[in-house]
Design a protein around this nucleic acid. Sequence first.
DNA 1: CCAGAAATACAACATATGATGAAGTCTCGA
DNA 2: TCGAGACTTCATCATATGTTGTATTTCTGG
Lengths: 262, 262
Amino acid sequence: MIDTLIRKLSIAGELTEGDLKTLRRASLHSRQVPARQDLTTQEDRPENVHLVLSGFVCRYKILPKGQRHITALMVPGDFCDLHVAILDEMDHSIATLTPCTVVEISRSTIRDLTENHPRIAHALWWATLVDEAVLREWFVGLAGREAAERIAHLFCELLLRLSVVGLAEKDGYALPFTQIDLADMLGLTPVHVNRTLQHLRSEDLIVLKKRRLEIPDAARLKAFCDFVPTYLHHTPRAKKSSAPPTQATNVSLGMRQNQTHR
Amino acid sequence: MIDTLIRKLSIAGELTEGDLKTLRRASLHSRQVPARQDLTTQEDRPENVHLVLSGFVCRYKILPKGQRHITALMVPGDFCDLHVAILDEMDHSIATLTPCTVVEISRSTIRDLTENHPRIAHALWWATLVDEAVLREWFVGLAGREAAERIAHLFCELLLRLSVVGLAEKDGYALPFTQIDLADMLGLTPVHVNRTLQHLRSEDLIVLKKRRLEIPDAARLKAFCDFVPTYLHHTPRAKKSSAPPTQATNVSLGMRQNQTHR
DNA sequence: CCAGAAATACAACATATGATGAAGTCTCGA
DNA sequence: TCGAGACTTCATCATATGTTGTATTTCTGG
């Protein structure tokens, strides 16, 4: 069960047998949480960090006007809120989207992990930064991709993220979200999500029924939305020992001065 | 000069005289960088972390279609790219928007700071998380606020962030960006930024001329865009010793099931 | 297996924002 | 001081997405 976490963290770097043991010990006590339930809420000062073992969890914010915005999606193997170990006031909430198995880890355990287990600390730090990179990509997509591409991009991202933890088959995966959930992640209206899904279906880019997504031609879908997976940092670090990557092979895009975008 | 950094970090927690000395030593050698110049670029594997001492720096991404998206703004006292110490491939670029003074700090120095100076490590960790919180707010604003509110929100954010480092007066500050820069931060078109600025001016919410922004009535502007500064985490941490904040005083907003937003 | 509730689908209309182009205005270096 | 490029301003038109409402399908608990 904890495998998902370990599979994920080992992308960040090698963990020793001792590290694994420590992680297993820290996440012994899991509990079941029903769908659509808050784990921690905005303006809370929570005492525990949550780790997802199964199911989907989201981070969300409610704006004064009442809209819900989902700013992140956590899949098995992801930590939900490592920040609470540092920032003491939450500026958002965490909730399950589906029934979930989660582990609660106390602040003090996290502190122990980070202070006494350098490789784990490094891996956690890495995980936080990847989360931030994903958020950045969502942000950029919201600003720069139109609805269809945005949805497609999310589907490609999930294909990769779920593969890493062994929850996707080659051509598809379970997608247990509501179109409303999708809308709140993508910054769209539920109606428009629906419209756009129809469109993607009509183009044979996706097959989505019964809460299962199938991607007939992943390459085509990726091309459709310009999916560049670098931001997920899923490729294990290059070995330090190997020859340095061919230098200056990538011509810098530079900074487009005065560029009027679009 | 380094004061800005120290002012900012001390929000995160107390630093000792020794910590301050270490920080000063690490940032002795600053250099001037002209406006609109890349500090590190997408797909780089940079060796140094940048700290801004004066001027404005941005983090940006160029999408395949060529648009530039600014995902973060760094003001004096901010680190630009602490991640490079952990993630070895950049998924975005960093560039100056105005002439700047920056310090370059090597990975190894950062590693030393984080491994041997727990309070500094904590403060850096804190700074990263705040950056993420800001990005989250930008994301939510992009999805949920319309153009005028979005711009106003950015102006309120900057008012606070600049105040912290002593770069804003009570009623205004220097805003040396181009409308194109603003557009790229806000996910808008330069034309629309312009239109919207006109609108804010006509409502007497802002006075913007000669690259200086004045806010005649900050409270009004904040109300206009529903500015809730929690996400900046600028309030010094509550003392552990003081009485716990009145419990359960905030009724949780809970998770609105099936809510159709907007 | 049914009934009610969610979720999805579809249609018609409204609007914020994008796109383009052209005319002013500023700014800064030679 | 001048001129040229860079910004800003403005107007017009195009369109992706929002809004509202209702029908249809799917799910779920009893």
